[in-house]
Design a protein around this nucleic acid. Structure first.
Length: 859
DNA sequence: TCCAACCCAGTTTTT
DNA sequence: CTGGGTTGGA
């Protein structure tokens, strides 16, 4: 059972990978350990070069994860280090899990867990908990999510009397996050930048934000690394301890590291400096002085500590090779797509400079895509200037050319792709092997509507992650308040959720009280209910809430933490709140809550659960069923599919105008890398689309094809007509030939959705220029008057339509007019019209929609 | 305190 | 055109 979200698909390590080429390699392979067999010479070199800094430039589909895991296995089997002496960092939990999984397979569970294999943040958090007191925290500190962060900043803005309309808390959160990404503590923020926010108050706000965090015993994501860096710099003995512990360091996705992560790695990667041995000054150390002397004049600090665009270069001769630990960074500069989030492509581009004597190994053999796809992707990315340069090659066949298809508008684009997917499905392709990769998430809607109409199963990848969902955060907030009564942010979050009549006024009052007496909100509440400052109603419900919390805390001693969570959710009325909710996603939310409680079992106790949850939780595994995947190009990184659709290649959308405006040439290059990532997701077929007209913010505008289309090599690309026949073996072009195809397929494949698609297709690309007026996701076309002009010309569709009519007059639908139904996407509604298996439903929330009956169930 | 009518702004996302 | 957030009335 392999599903798209399964770890095994994250990076392609195909079974069909040829044996290592080259006589020497083959000879070695025959004598080497078993895990080395099957590696190609470059991969093998990357695995076996254990000493000194190594940069593995691993192009898409070249077996990057395989190299990383095999390298760890090699280190262990060579006895060079014990599991606990290897630091191995990834960006995502998914990647970390995947590595653990593969290591387990490779080593046959011989090695008990790798304690230091994890994400930057989880490892940083772990280290910070050990030395929490050095960051004025307790070891059980809370990791704040974005919501908490923003709420806290809002309060600070209010306290400063800053108009949070003009200076939104979210913006400040972004700024602070950016500073932290760059490794800047409040005192190190360049004054110009600090002044940008709220007329010069930005820096001060950052400072007071940090102070508040300490009081709340909380850290945000940025702190997990930044506080590590601070501790390492201020306490060389502690740093040395970690330097000695980690004999080997491995880094995944190095191209995505930001400055803070870079500094963190740099500090850890230095050979432990023995007191008797004067170690050369490294980049990381140079900064130490400025931070250590925080009271010093700000000017020195600014000069030294504002590493932008990248920290100070290491001067030649500053370091000898044997002072750098065995660090191996794996990455692909051509897949760096997170610059806007603080990632510094520079880190990977400057690796050799930062780590003199570094061995650079290129993995260029691609085991994923066909020749045409690879050529197209390589050509495209070759237009970038800021890159180290790799040329992907494959021993696979050329395969099918990459197709480029123009459509009149985005709706036709969605129709065309929907149709093509059904075509592929007919050819026996699994929907799981089909993906649509969009630049911006708003493009998804059109496809969703289309797929709902067609009854085509699809799944959206990405979107809000599990622990980011409101219901999960609410539930966690309850548990946080139980765990630590001083967690004001959590208390504030749930004090009136579900509604208890404790609104802004009450909360404000509690705040005043708490601030005056310097006590947590919860304690303030306890005090306030003894007074008559609140109206009886509010006072009563606040008292009830506090009594409940006291009871839950008492229960904590005698109840398993999972049971406690269930009790809290039920008794607080939180479960009930969603049970009463009639909106479409209420059921899903209740399901998520169950999942949350279930997931708690993996942890020892409530404390342990809360400490890890914010770092480790991610979205649920998703259904196993066969479905088309719909996601952004960004979330597609690391995945692969046989068939990949790339819609929306238009100037302004892709490359995104905003990125171009804000980042200029660097932005363009990042967009191009995004295109490269998109293309290289495809194993066998890559299909690019562009539309001439697209609705942006509600208004239609004409667009021009993306410049990236011109950058594709003509030899590997085929321009098809608005619904190309040739892509799947037809004669191409429209008119009679395509029509024949339809007739041929009509007999064996005749879902109503498919038939509608045929009708729509003809309407959209043939007769009229638009389709603009058609309501998205509706069935209007199949019964609209102009269908006549279509059917009068040809017999085929008429027959199909005949069947459809015959079907609709029968009593095939299990639904009756006025039935209450539930739809996965639109929620509850009432059937207002029935036409065969097509239902018109007036949804409570989503309005009137037409859907296939198999998509709804009786409510 | 709560809900409904307005108004405005509008990529990409992990931890 | 949508959704989020704010404002105004009950």
């Amino acid at each position: 059972m392999i599903r798209m979200t399964e770890p095994s698909k994250i990076t392609g390590v195909p079974d069909h990978q040829p044996a290592a080429g080259g006589i020497a390699a083959r000879a070695r392979a025959s004598v080497g350990p078993k895990y080395l067999s099957g590696l190609n010479p470059e991969q093998r070199e990357a695995v076996e070069t254990l000493d000194g800094p190594v940069l593995v430039l691993a192009g898409a589909g070249t077996g990057k994860t395989r190299v990383l895991t095999t390298r760890i296995a090699h280190i262990l089997s060579q006895g060079r280090a014990r599991p606990a002496e290897i630091l191995s960092v990834t960006f995502t939990n998914k990647a970390a899990r995947e590595m653990k999984h593969r290591l387990g397979q490779m080593l046959g569970h011989a090695v008990e867990g790798m304690p230091w294999l994890g994400t930057f943040h989880s490892i940083g958090g772990r280290i910070l908990r050990v030395h929490a007191e050095l960051a004025q925290l307790k070891s059980n500190f809370t990791v704040l999510d974005v919501d908490d962060q923003v709420r806290l900043l809002k309060q600070l803005l209010q306290a400063e009397n800053i108009d949070d309309k003009r200076w939104p808390a979210r913006m400040l959160a972004g700024l602070i996050d950016g500073w932290k990404n760059r490794g800047l503590m409040p005192s190190q923020v360049p004054s110009g930048e600090a002044a940008m926010f709220a007329n010069g108050k930005g820096g001060k706000l950052y400072t007071s934000y940090q102070e508040r965090l300490k009081i709340l015993n909380a850290a945000d994501f940025g702190d997990l690394l930044l506080e590590n860096i601070r501790i390492f710099r201020e306490h060389p003995d502690i740093l040395r301890q970690y330097q000695q512990r980690f004999k080997f360091i491995l880094v995944d996705e190095y191209q995505d590291t930001n400055v803070a992560q870079y500094l963190w790695l740099r500090l850890l990667s230095q050979a432990p400096a023995s007191p008797s041995f004067a170690s050369p000054r490294l980049r990381g150390e140079a900064d130490t002085r400025s931070v250590a002397g925080e009271g010093d004049s700000p000017s020195t600090e600014l000069v030294e500590a504002a590493p932008h665009p990248s920290p100070l270069p290491v001067k030649d001769g500053e370091r000898e090779k044997n002072h750098v630990k065995n660090i191996c960074c794996v990455g692909d500069d051509d897949q760096s797509i997170y610059g806007w989030r603080g990632a510094e492509v520079d880190n990977i581009l400057r690796f050799e400079h930062d780590f003199p004597g570094a061995k650079v190994i290129r993995l260029e053999r691609n085991y994923r895509s066909t020749g045409h796809i690879l050529a197209a992707a390589s050509h495209l990315i070759a237009h970038n200037e800021g890159r180290l340069g790799k040329t992907l090659r494959t021993e696979d066949q050329d395969g099918e050319k990459v197709t480029v298809t123009g459509s009149w508008d985005s709706e036709e684009e969605a129709r065309g792709i929907g149709e093509e997917i059904e075509q592929l499905q007919r050819q026996g392709e699994k929907l799981n092997e089909i993906a649509i990769l969009v630049r911006a998430s708003y493009q998804m809607r059109e496809f969703e509507d289309r797929f709902v109409t067609l009854g085509l199963p699809y799944r959206v990848i990405g979107g809000p992650r599990f622990y980011e969902r409101a219901e999960i955060r609410d539930a966690l907030a309850y548990l946080r308040v139980i765990n630590s009564p001083a967690d004001d942010l959590a208390f504030e979050r749930i004090v009136n959720t579900p509604k208890r009549g404790l609104g802004d006024a009450t909360v404000q009052m509690l705040h005043d009280h708490a601030r005056k007496r310097r006590i947590p909100l919860f304690e303030a509440a306890r005090a306030v209910i003894e007074t008559d400052e609140l109206k009886p109603k509010a006072r009563g419900s606040l008292r009830d809430l506090i009594t409940q919390f006291d009871r839950w805390r008492a229960q904590r001693e005698v109840t398993a933490h999972t049971d406690l969570a269930q009790i809290v959710l039920d008794e607080s009325g939180y479960t009930e709140m969603w049970q009463k909710d009639r909106s479409a996603d209420a059921a899903g939310r209740l399901e998520n809550l169950k999942e949350l409680v279930r997931s708690m079992e993996e942890f020892e106790n409530l404390q342990g659960f809360l400490e890890h949850i914010s770092l480790v939780m991610d979205r649920e595994g998703g259904a196993e069923e066969d479905a088309v995947s719909l996601m952004t190009l960004h979330s597609a990184k690391g995945l692969e599919f046989d068939n990949v659709f790339l819609p929306g290649w238009e100037e302004g959308l892709f490359p995104s105008q905003r990125t171009l405006d804000e980042q200029g040439r660097a932005g363009l290059e990042e967009e191009r890398r995004l295109g490269h990532v998109g293309l290289t997701r495809a194993r066998r077929r890559a299909m690019i689309y562009f539309a001439t007209n697209r609705r942006i913010h509600g208004t239609w505008s004409t667009t021009i094809p993306s410049r990236f289309l011109d950058e594709l090599p003509a030899a590997n690309v085929e321009i098809t007509e608005s619904k190309g026949g040739s892509a799947w073996g037809g004669t191409g072009g429209f008119g009679a030939s395509r029509f024949d195809d339809m007739e041929a397929f009509g007999s064996s494949y005749s879902t109503p959705g498919w038939q509608r698609a045929q009708a729509n297709r003809n309407r959209g690309s043939g007769g009229r220029s638009g389709g603009v007026e058609e309501e998205a996701g509706s069935f209007s076309s199949s019964s609209s008057p102009d269908f006549g002009s279509f059917s009068s010309r040809r017999r085929g569709p008429l027959t199909i339509e005949g069947e459809l009519v015959a079907k609709s007059t029968g009593t095939t639908s299990e639904f009756a007019l006025g039935d209450r139904v539930f739809h996965q996407k639109f929620g509850y509604g009432r059937v207002s019209k029935i036409d065969g298996n097509k239902l018109t439903i007036a949804f409570d929330k989503a309005g009137e929609k037409k859907v296939v009956d198999s998509f709804v169930q009786r409510a």
